[in-house]
Simulated scan of single mutants.
Amino acid sequence: MKLNLTFRQCIPDDIHTLCNFSYKTYNETFAHMNTPSNMKAYLEQSFNISKLYGELSNSNSLFYFLYANGELAGYLKLNEAPSQTDINNMQSLEIERIYVAKEFQGEGLGNVLMNKAIDIANARKKLYVWLGVWERNDRAILFYKKNGFYEIGTHSFFMGEEEQTDFVMRKNL
């Protein structure tokens, strides 16, 4: 079945949908690889309404919902400097979050979200895009490599009490 895909930029009124969808997709992706206590701590810290509202209100961050046949299927979060999580280079755009709901995985929506991020970066005349990806997330690392990203370093990421390592990956535009 062909999916009818549409994007919509998130607005503050979307806060509850964003919060619920963030919990859902993050949990689907990482719960099996982390302890329940670390997942609970991370989800409560990172995807609470107050924190997400602050991110949505930040003029240097953009959120986009991706709908498939009218149903929320994925979302994207992009950051420009100085709101990037690491590099903070005005010539770059960070892809901080790119998530697809489990029921839509395997439909090519990750590529659709990636292409949206690249289109926005090009429209804003960025020289490159970058992202952080957990070193144990083999599926995502392979996806990013297939999309032209290469590793440029690492940084720490805290999942609850546990310090984890993210690969920092870059794609030149």
Rank of each mutant, 00 (worst) to 15 (best):
Lys116Leu: 15
Ala117Val: 02
Ile118Thr: 03
Glu107Lys: 11
Phe104Ser: 07
Asn88Tyr: 15
Met114Ala: 04
Asn115Lys: 03
Glu103Ile: 13
Ile87Arg: 03
Asn89Gln: 08
Asp119Ala: 11
Tyr99Trp: 10
Lys116Arg: 08
Asn88Glu: 15
Leu109Trp: 12
Leu113Tyr: 14
Leu113Gly: 13
Gly106Asp: 12
Gly106Ser: 09
Glu96Arg: 00
Lys102Gly: 15
Tyr99Lys: 05
Ile120Ser: 02
Glu96Asn: 01
Leu109Ala: 13
Ser92Ile: 00
Ala121Ser: 10
Met90Arg: 09
Asn122Thr: 07
Asn88Pro: 06
Gln105Tyr: 11
Ile98Cys: 07
Glu96Ile: 05
Glu103Gly: 05
Glu96Thr: 02
Gln91Arg: 06
Phe104Ala: 03
Gly108Cys: 13
Ser92Met: 04
Ser92Gln: 07
Glu96Tyr: 04
Asn115Gln: 12
Ala117Arg: 02
Ile98Gly: 03
Ile120Leu: 07
Gly108His: 08
Ala121Trp: 04
Ile98Phe: 11
Val100His: 11
Met90Asn: 10
Ala121Lys: 00
Gly106Glu: 12
Asn89Arg: 03
Asn111Leu: 02
Asp119Met: 05
Glu103Pro: 11
Asn88Arg: 07
Ala101Arg: 05
Ile98His: 02
Ser92Thr: 01
Glu103Asp: 13
Leu93His: 02
Lys102His: 14
Gln91Gly: 04
Ile95Trp: 08
Lys102Glu: 14
Ala117Phe: 02
Glu107Ile: 06
Ile118His: 02
Leu93Phe: 09
Lys116Val: 07
Glu96Gly: 01
Met114Arg: 01
Asn111Pro: 06
Gln91Cys: 04
Gln105Phe: 15
Gly106Ile: 11
Ile120Cys: 06
Glu103Met: 08
Ala121Ile: 01
Glu107Thr: 00
Gly106Met: 11
Ile120Pro: 10
Tyr99Val: 09
Arg124Ala: 01
Asn122Trp: 00
Ile118Trp: 00
Ser92Cys: 07
Ser92Ala: 10
Ile118Ala: 04
Glu94Lys: 01
Glu107Gln: 12
Asp119Asn: 09
Leu109Phe: 14
Glu96Trp: 08
Leu113Glu: 14
Asn88Leu: 10
Met90Ile: 12
Gln91Leu: 09
Leu113Asp: 14
Gln105Ser: 04
Leu109Asn: 06
Gln105Ile: 09
Gly110Ser: 06
Ser92Pro: 01
Glu107Tyr: 14
Glu107His: 10
Ile118Asp: 05
Met90Ser: 14
Leu109His: 07
Arg124Val: 00
Lys102Val: 14
Asn122Val: 07
Ala123Gly: 13
Lys116Ile: 14
Arg97Cys: 09
